[in-house]
């Protein structure tokens, strides 16, 4: 394997208030790989030049100078980092352990298509949407609980999702799980109530130095750009007020372009 000193820092574009960019950052921290964070604001993520990097206008995206590869979608990025750099299989299984390899990818896919989108919709209807729509809130809160119950069942009697060691599949779930209280506005202590296996598993990962380092970097980056730890910009009273101001700014800019 390449010596770590010979690896040039991987550039990772993050919108720090969002959970998804921190999934690959956590993987990079656990592997001890060099990387640089590039802050993308909520206003800039949907327009050029960033959309030349990710046409979907979402973070994270990476640019790896070692391979000259630009990549987006956090799941694809994680699979790339693992296959390219985890050659000692610290967070994965060697490819001859085919079963474990595919099972890791299976749980990553579940994170990507299940936990991420549904937790995100729960946050939208609980927190961000200005109007309270009880049936929509109930729908996504129930789905959030259902996903936790699937994980809790899978972790029954075991420490990790695949085999007997922590892998990228486990780590991929931490960032969203860590913020459940902000997503559905429950008490922090009660967010895993009924799911003791998930709670123990989550704490097993978030007590590690890599998690702490990633979260310190997040907080620092947020602070530098005037954001509170919960993602709210300083000086705004609510997410609604902030989003209204972003929307107003966007409209003003669009009007300027037309003129």
């Amino acid at each position: 394997m390449q010596s770590i000193d010979a690896i040039k820092p991987i550039k990772i574009h993050v919108l720090p208030a969002g959970p998804n960019p921190w999934k690959p950052v956590l993987i990079l921290e656990e592997l001890g790989l060099p990387y640089s964070l590039n802050f993308i604001s909520f206003e800039d993520v949907k327009k050029k030049p960033f959309t030349d990097i990710n046409p979907n206008g979402r973070a994270p995206a990476i640019e790896d100078p070692n391979t000259d590869l630009t990549l987006w979608e956090s799941g694809a990025i994680i699979q790339y980092i693992i296959s390219q750099y985890d050659t000692n299989h610290i967070l994965s299984y060697p490819s001859y352990a085919l079963k474990e390899t595919h099972l890791c990818n299976q749980w990553l896919a579940f994170q990507i298509s299940g936990q991420g989108p549904y937790f995100g919709q729960a946050a939208w209807f609980n927190v961000l949407h200005p109007e309270k729509l009880p049936s929509a809130i109930a729908r996504y809160n129930a789905e959030l609980k259902r996903i936790l119950s699937v994980l809790d069942g899978a972790l029954e009697g075991r420490q990790w999702l695949v085999g007997d060691k922590m892998t990228f599949a486990d780590l991929a779930f931490t960032v969203w799980n860590d913020r459940i209280e902000d997503l559905i506005l429950c008490e922090k202590e009660k967010k895993f109530e009924g799911f003791p296996n998930v709670q123990a598993w989550h704490e097993r990962m978030t007590s590690r130095p890599a998690w702490k380092k990633a979260m310190e970097k997040r907080e620092k980056l947020m602070d530098e750009h005037g954001l509170l730890p919960n993602g709210m910009p300083k000086g705004f009273k609510s997410h609604g007020e902030f989003h209204a101001s972003v929307e107003a700014k966007r409209k003003a800019e669009a009007a300027e372009v037309k003129e």
């Binding site: 590869l69 979608e73 694809a76």
Partner: peptide
């Protein structure tokens, strides 16, 4: 595996599974 196209292919699979499908 390991080619640029391989990673780009996975990029779009995740785009579908995390984006188009759920939405």
């Amino acid at each position: 595996p390991g080619t640029r196209e391989f990673y780009e292919m996975n990029n779009w699979i995740f785009f579908l599974n995390a984006g188009v499908g759920p939405m």
